[in-house]
Simulated scan of single mutants.
Amino acid sequence: MMDVLTESSTTVHRDAIPEERTLLIVDDDKSFLQRIAKAIEGRGFEVTIAESVAEGLRQVERDAPAFAVVDMRLGDGNGLDVISALKRRRPEARGIIMTGYGNIATAVTAVKLGAVDYLAKPVDADDVVAALLAQDRKDIDPPENPMSADRVRWEHIQRIYELCGRNVSETARRLNMHRRTLQRILAKRAPR
Rank of each mutant, 00 (worst) to 15 (best):
R21Q: 13
R21W: 03
T22R: 06
T22Y: 07
T22E: 11
L24I: 11
I25C: 01
I25V: 10
V26E: 02
D27L: 05
D29K: 00
K30Y: 13
K30L: 12
K30E: 14
K30H: 11
S31L: 08
F32L: 15
F32W: 09
F32T: 13
F32V: 10
L33P: 00
L33Y: 03
L33H: 01
Q34H: 10
R35P: 00
I36K: 07
A37M: 09
A37D: 08
K38F: 12
K38D: 09
E41H: 06
E41P: 01
G42C: 02
V47I: 01
I49P: 00
E51P: 00
E51C: 07
E51N: 10
V53F: 04
A54S: 12
E55Y: 00
G56V: 00
G56M: 00
G56H: 04
L57V: 15
L57K: 05
R58L: 14
Q59M: 12
V60K: 00
E61P: 07
E61R: 12
R62V: 11
D63Q: 15
P65W: 10
P65K: 05
P65H: 08
A66I: 14
A66K: 06
A68F: 08
A68Y: 09
A68G: 12
V69I: 15
V70S: 05
M72N: 13
M72R: 14
M72V: 07
